Computed example of a mutant assay.
Amino acid sequence: MSEITPDLVRHLGVLARIQLSDAEVERLTGQLDSIVSNIAKVSEVATADVVATSHPVALENVFRPDVPGAVLTVAQALQNAPDADDDRFRVTAILGEEQ
């Protein structure tokens, strides 16, 4: 017995505000039913003693040590700025107060 029916697919299309042709409804009915069946198969074999994983192989991030390096001086940081004021970048307002 199929859980996914053409009426259900049409209803999902209405909820998603997607207009589906009859051919699309027929195709999606089969595809969604296959997806639901496969999920049911996985659910049958998934047991509480099997740890959930997102990858088949354990992953580990490899980070380098966080060591501070050379930094720019204020003058170096502002040397190519189109406009600067009081050791800061000066930019035009974007919120509409100043134009």
Rank of each mutant, 00 (worst) to 15 (best):
V67S: 00
G30L: 14
T29F: 05
T5F: 07
V36W: 08
V74T: 07
H55C: 12
Q19T: 14
G13K: 01
L15P: 04
G13P: 01
V74P: 02
A46K: 09
H11Y: 05
Q31N: 11
L32Y: 15
P82N: 02
Q76S: 04
A58W: 01
E60L: 15
A81E: 02
A40Y: 02
P65F: 02
T47D: 08
H55M: 08
D33P: 11
V36S: 02
L59D: 13
G30T: 13
A46H: 08
D49H: 07
A77L: 02
V71P: 03
L78H: 09
N80W: 03
R64Y: 01
V25K: 05
T53P: 10
P82G: 04
F63E: 05
N61T: 10
L20I: 01
L28F: 13
H11M: 10
D7G: 15
D49F: 07
I4S: 06
V57K: 09
P56H: 08
L72F: 06
I39L: 15
E24R: 06
H11V: 08
I4E: 04
V74G: 04
E60C: 08
G30Q: 11
T53V: 12
V9D: 07
L59I: 14
L28M: 11
Q76I: 01
T73L: 02
S37R: 15
L12N: 10
